[in-house]
Structures are given as C-alpha cells and as structure tokens.
Design a binder for these strands. Structure first.
Length: 116
DNA sequence: AAGTTGACCAAAA
DNA sequence: GTTTTGGCCAACT
C-alpha cells in the first residue's frame, strides 16, 4: 500500500462517487473504515487539497442537505450542478423538519445515495 | 509537544 | 418539540 491516510482514502472515495449519486459524510467515513469519523471526512474536504478534482458537491449531510457556505460558490450553484447530474431534489416540505442548509433543497437520498 | 477546533452524527435534558 | 452535550479521529495553531 502506498499512502494510507484517512484523508487520502476519503478523496479516493469521494472521487469514486458516480455521477448522479451522492454520499453522506457518515457513509464516506464508514467506507473509509471509521464510521464515527464523519467529521474528519468533512475536515479533509475542507482542507480541499485537490481543488477541482474532488466533487465535494456530491457529499451531503445525513439529512440530505449540504454545507451552506463551504460547498463552493453558492448553494444554488450546487443545486444546479447536482440537478444537472441527474440528482433528484426535494423541496422543503412542512413535515421534513430540520433546517435546510442549501436553500432548503434536500437531495433525495432515498434515490441518489451512493451505494458502494 | 500539547491544546484546540472541526464540511458530523446521534442521543439525552 | 427544540436545544445542548457527548464522542470519535485527524489536522490546525
């Protein structure tokens, strides 16, 4: 094995997310080998060692919302990108509860959550 | 070298 | 029902 760092593995996994699918931080962490290490996943992406190479917009919260100000240019931009990739978005319904990070639009994890 | 923070997640008060 | 705390592990100061 060449390099085995948690972040490295995270980048690899995130880069491996197929177009039209999204993964949650917890899932990436779990796939990386540490289901409790979701924070480090976010930290790794925040570090953004490879700008333009890592599709951070495909990584979302457990609720299906994204980071409201860290994803990239803007939340609407992300919605456009994901939607363009074929990801189904769900408008904030009254019964959804929870604050919506990105504009209130949540990714339909029921359909687009990436499966290893 | 040690302490603090952090793109999270889940449970308890 | 909402708000706060706890906990994991790695990187930053």
């Amino acid at each position: 094995m060449t390099e085995s760092s948690f972040s490295e593995r995270v980048y690899e996994l995130v880069c491996r997310i197929p177009q039209g699918s999204v993964a949650t931080y917890g899932q990436i962490a779990a796939l990386a080998g540490n289901p409790r290490n979701a924070r480090v996943v976010g930290y790794a992406l925040h570090s953004n060692p490879k700008p333009g190479v890592i599709p951070c917009h495909r990584v979302v919260f457990r609720d299906g919302s994204l980071a409201p100000g860290f994803a990239f240019g803007g939340p609407e931009r992300q919605r456009e990108l994901l939607e363009d990739e074929g990801i189904r978005f769900i408008p904030p319904k009254d019964g959804e509860s929870k604050p919506a990070g990105a504009d209130g639009w949540l990714v339909d994890l029921s359909r687009c959550q990436w499966k290893a």
